[in-house]
Design a protein around this nucleic acid. Structure first.
Lengths: 171, 171
DNA sequence: ATAATTGCAAAGGATTTGCACGAGT
DNA sequence: ACTCGTGCAAATCCTTTGCAATTAT
């Protein structure tokens, strides 16, 4: 009925697939394969979660410090256009990017305490939306559902919150 | 099962209620009643739909041209704090504000062609979300559901699109 | 009188863009 | 060669803020 995507490891084969798909897109569009783009997508697809531009740039700089914001933004746009990545906005004012997971579409639960973002998918929910659209003479292209709230498992939640706070101090 | 809020007229009594509620809020907080605030909320509550700051400012300026962005932004924040208005973001990069309608909570369908935004509410949808949260050991504070797509009634949709285009030329 | 509010312009943060130089095809 | 991409800084967009003058209590 419901699946939550919380795997902790990145499937190397999947990453290779994405990289290949991006190369194909670049070629199809008559664009060029560059060292910077390769670095950026390689880093991006090996990160998991909902990555902000800044987070991505930080990681990218560890590989090639000369790469700047502009190139990261531009590459991210290409990734979105190519349908390999989705842009999300969770109301904190900055865009986050998500490499498509195995699950084609999914929704999000966002813990306002610890910042955890978990993904879920439920066919009944999808069906119900379709039905409501139908009743309104409306055709859905895509949708967005976000549940904002808090983890009930306070131990786990606090742990995440603390480790995030520590990280912020460290950075 | 489902209700769509599409009324075309603003209930004057409701507006008066809102204005009174805002006055009460201002007073409770020890803030001041000013001509500018009165103008802004009076204009705002008589507009319907999902108003951007720019739209609101344009209308406000017709009443008092000396009012500027800052005051509109600040008043809008008060309206949000006072719980009389909700802030929404539909991904076009600007905030929109919505005076609470009679329906406490509702979700949105957004037509990407004509820009129509309609509201709906469905208890089964709400219940299903609760159930999914429960299964994930998660407590929902609030949620956001947006269906992006297109009107099936192409005539009405085109009409709206054209009148919007005309408006843009006129302004 | 006192504290809050206004309007302007300047500052802010996230994102985009112009341009000269550099790299892929 | 030719076109596209890069990196930088400057520009842009929406929004917030500092401040001196003004206004509500």
């Amino acid at each position: 009925m419901m699946s939550v995507n919380q795997a902790k490891e990145v499937d190397e084969n999947l990453v290779k697939e994405k990289e290949a798909a991006f190369a194909e897109y670049i070629q199809r569009k008559g664009l060029k394969t560059t060292r910077q783009r390769n670095t950026i997508i390689s880093v991006f697809f090996r990160l998991r979660g909902h990555i902000s531009v800044e987070e991505l740039l930080n990681e990218v700089k560890k590989v090639n410090p000369r790469i700047g914001y502009a190139t990261v933004y531009r590459t991210l746009h290409l990734l979105v256009e190519s349908n390999l990545v989705e842009e999300r906005r969770f109301g904190d004012g900055l865009a986050r990017y998500e490499g498509h997971s195995d699950v084609e579409h999914h929704d999000h639960m966002i813990c306002l305490e610890c910042g955890m973002i978990s993904e879920f998918f439920n066919p009944r929910l999808e069906a119900l939306q379709e039905k409501l659209a139908e009743e309104n003479n409306f055709q859905i292209y895509r949708h967005r559902l976000e549940l904002y709230g808090a983890c009930k498992d306070k131990d786990a939640c606090n742990k995440r919150k603390n480790s995030k706070a520590a990280e912020a101090r460290g950075a």
